[in-house]
Amino acid sequence: MEKDYSSIERVRVSKVKIKIEKLYKIFGPKAKEMTQEVKNGVNKDELLAKYNHVLGLDNINLDIEEQTIQVVMGLSGSGKSTLIRHINRLIEPTEGVVLVDNQDVTKLDKNELLDFRRTRTGMVFQRFGLFPHQNIIDNVQLGLSIKGVEKAESNETAMFWIDKVGLNGFEYKFPNQLSGGMQQRVGLARALANDPDILLMDEAFSALDPLIRSDMQDQLLELQKNLKKTIMFITHDLDEALKLGDQIAILNGGKLVQNGKPEEILLNPADDYVTKFVQDVNRAKVLKVKSIMISNSQGTEGPKVNMNDSIESCLPTILDTRSTLGVVDDQNNIVGSISDKEVASILRNN
């Protein structure tokens, strides 16, 4: 008799890939001593005014699950770019721990750190950070050549990733002969060619114009379906965060003010800062049916909607019928119901 594993598969045991604990970063000559002041409750503005030190990160605690996209959001100066640079230690922490697969990155010695960067992490930069004096194929195999991979092999890998990001035929062009969007594809291919398990993306799409940005977001999600990397994605754009993030962390003045699933952020903003952030979002577009449906397993007559659809996409059906609709999961099992009442209450809060 065949057993049905499908339900087991769905509740895959999640594993924490990156664990950030009590992380502090203060910029200035007496950073260590200032940590105590910050612990006593001095905030970013006071620290700058009183002690002339800049508070980068203030007691950050964050768990990032394997194979998910963790978005970190905040306005400029909130510490998000500082935070991402602690994962591969481009910035040294003042205090705290960054664990990757239970290994403390902050304790690695010089060579271990180089090795960690060469094998475990790939990074994509806001302004691309491509080598202007090298052609695309050489740019893509940067990580491989630093590791000392043989030329023939690394060429092949580079060609594979150039093809993957859709840059066939541009292998021997130089970066400045490419448009911004294409350059960032090179940046992405360069990070992926190294086959790291962690991908760090620092405002990777912020420098691109809106249409290209949307394309790149789709491409990243498409790639992620197969790659299943652990991705930390920095952005200041909430729409981008909602589109990409499995989890969204929001930073303000170096403090982590909220971390949760997109719908949690939208429906239960932790404070005024987050509320302000999310107030202009079109909720019907972002929220999924499952996040506002009433769970039950009674069947209802009439049309059904999928629990993973956005509210916006089933609005016409709801408005047409003016009645309670059944909600089904991907296997077409009834999981709940939704009516115009729930939709109206969500949209009213906008």
């Binding site: 481009l90 090795d115 960067r117 094998t119 930069f125 950070g129 080598f131 202007p132 990580g143 630093i146």
Partner: peptide
């Protein structure tokens, strides 16, 4: 940023 990229890839 180019230098930082080199750093990030372990140069």
């Amino acid at each position: 940023e180019v230098l930082e990229a080199a750093d990030a890839f372990g140069a």
